[in-house]
């Protein structure tokens, strides 16, 4: 910026080039700020987790992870992910499809609704299910009469997780589908393809990266969700505890090493997600 004034006499190309490049000290300050920030707020905590988890040796680490209660938390988390993510995949596809390819009354409202879980605090997300399905809730007596348990049980956890991960797939797909329009689909239909063939052979290949990306993001969120799940879970050890809830319990019992050991598991899952995500992104940009 400051450097351009003295350089006006040079050829236009050089001026144009230099005028969009900051002077070195600005660059170094910006890079430095970003690096320091990342180190303090990201790298350092990750290291702490790893170091604390291993502070009592590999044996203790393995023990903390293979503890039956911990194992059951892992199983429950994976179970919840296995239900919530496919549900959101189907819902996200349907929502993105209807929003990007059709015009209908209430479209704007639906778009706003999809974003709701992003804007509502997770605790509230959990609470609405308690108010709906809990013993004192609107549907409570009905559920009790039929002996159906949702709150403080696995179904509640699944519902809360679906709610908070609701927008991910749809939000990823809407811009992709909108930018692609429907000309390829129309072409496929005029060529005699059925609606189903059009979806599998034309639509799906076009949106697969966006779809996978959305699935990865919603999986990550589903595994790590604490607030909403905490409200509806009831924290019953070995039954309704997911990994994040188990970490909290261990921490509250001053069992820091075990807490960090289990936390490192979540972190590992997060790292896998990030790696998968960047692998997907590189795949997307590759020329086909």
């Amino acid at each position: 910026m400051g450097g351009t004034i003295g350089l006006r006499t040079q050829s236009k190309d050089v001026v144009a080039n230099i005028s969009i490049t900051e002077p070195p000290f600005v660059r170094w300050i910006l890079i430095g700020v970003a690096l320091i920030f990342l180190t303090i707020f990201l790298l350092f905590p990750i290291l702490i987790v790893v170091v604390s988890a291993l502070s009592k040796g590999i044996g203790f680490y393995a023990q903390a992870l293979t503890d039956p209660v911990a194992m059951s938390a892992v199983r429950l988390t994976l179970f919840v992910v296995a239900i919530a993510v496919p549900m959101n995949l189907i819902f996200g596809l349907a929502a993105a499809w209807s929003i990007s390819k059709f015009n209908f009354w209430g479209k704007k409202f639906l778009l706003t609704l999809i974003d709701l879980p992003f804007t509502v605090s997770p605790v509230i997300s959990g609470l609405i299910y308690v108010l709906l399905f809990g013993a004192q809730g609107v549907l409570g007596p009905l559920l009790q009469a039929h002996n159906i348990k949702i709150i403080f049980a696995v179904p509640g956890i699944v519902l809360a997780t679906i709610f908070v991960t609701f927008p991910f797939v749809a939000r990823e797909l809407i811009p992709v589908m909108e930018s692609q329009g429907n000309e390829e689909e129309i072409s496929a239909l005029t060529l005699g393809a059925s609606g189903w063939q059009t979806f599998w052979k034309v639509t799906l290949p076009n949106i697969k990266w966006g779809l996978l990306y959305g699935v990865i993001l919603s999986s990550a969120r589903a595994m790590g969700e604490f607030g909403a799940v905490s409200v509806v879970s009831g924290h019953i050890r070995g039954l309704t505890n997911t990994i994040p809830l188990h970490v909290e319990i261990l921490y509250n019992e001053y069992n820091f090493t075990a807490a960090f050991a289990v936390a490192s598991l979540l972190m590992l899952l997060a790292l896998v997600t990030v790696v998968l995500k960047s692998w997907l992104e590189s795949g997307e940009t590759q020329p086909k």
Partner: peptide
């Protein structure tokens, strides 16, 4: 008749080829 039953050849300005 539905789009797929009409047997029309439709060509778009921006080709609408299947990219993949």
């Amino acid at each position: 008749l539905s789009l797929s039953e009409r047997k029309v050849g439709f060509v778009f300005q921006h080709y609408a080829l299947f990219k993949h």
